[in-house]
Amino acid sequence: MGVSDYYKILKVNHDATDEELKKAFKKLAMKWHPDKNYDHHKKEDFEAKFKQISEAYDVLSDPKKRQIYDFYGHYPLNSHRYNKENGDGNVKDHEKKGVVESSLGCTLEELYKGCKRRLRISRIVPDELDNLTSIEEILKIDIQPGWKKGTKITFPGKGNQENGAAPADLIFVLDEKPHALFKRDGNDLVTTQKILLVDALTGGKTLNLKTLDGRDLTVQVTEIVKPGSELVVPNEGMPISKEPGKKGNLRIKFNVMFPSRLTTQQKYELKKILE
């Protein structure tokens, strides 16, 4: 099979469950089994296709073989020994041009405060008999306050290794998990708050927010809230990693809540006031 894509062969996603793999294999096996072919001119095609399907299912249905395949990009079926222990299931790897890149998901709180992460990795290396096998290591990563999505942390020589070649580098690429309240925009934090129409027109609204480092932040809305307007709170955004002690801004957008209905008298009085 070489570097064929087993997932495409079985027509499943990369996160397919065991049950989904089993159903996909059964469906394709029924279609391509050589015994189902009554045209002897096409028998070789059916046999080749059925072999591909069987090989793909053999690898993906075995947790250890599947991890090696996902990690290494293919599963060398002629290797004498593979021993794949469970690694960190939150790290998704792919190899290209001698470098292994792994997506490292972080919460917005972790990127705000900084944190230390310990990651168990599994990588493919030749053993003393030049058979490809799997080893495990623990790597430590210090995530600094303010680091952004896409930041890369490189561990030289900690990737996969083929026979006769130097080990690849391992690179972790920071990814940002969605947050329930805030969105990041560069060094700024953006949140949308609901506000009644009367408060938008008269001011006097108090907003109580919980910051990413657990503080209670009180913000007073004193001005008229116009369509598209934002309230900017300085120095309450994300830390700026290259400028210690400095932060971006907190930008508050508003979702003005209109009343569902007005009485005739209310409409008359409102018109009189606004005119």
Rank of each mutant, 00 (worst) to 15 (best):
G214P: 06
L201Q: 13
L217I: 07
S122W: 02
G245T: 04
K23D: 11
T151Q: 02
A168M: 06
T218M: 12
A29I: 05
D213R: 05
M238C: 03
G98H: 14
A29T: 01
T107N: 07
T263F: 05
N255I: 01
K49Q: 11
I224Q: 12
L270T: 08
N249S: 12
K113A: 04
V221D: 09
D175N: 07
E223D: 13
A24K: 11
T133R: 10
N208G: 02
I273A: 10
G105L: 12
G245A: 03
K158N: 04
E136M: 12
R120K: 15
L104G: 00
V256N: 13
P178W: 00
F25P: 06
S134M: 13
K158A: 10
E95L: 15
I273N: 01
E230S: 05
K149V: 09
I121M: 13
K43T: 03
N90I: 10
K140Q: 11
E20A: 15
V190T: 00
L132E: 01
L139K: 06
D39Q: 02
L77D: 04
L270P: 01
L21D: 09
D216F: 06
L10Q: 03
N90V: 13
E275N: 10
I53W: 05
K210H: 06
L217M: 14
I171Y: 04
F25Q: 07
D199N: 12
S102R: 14
V100I: 12
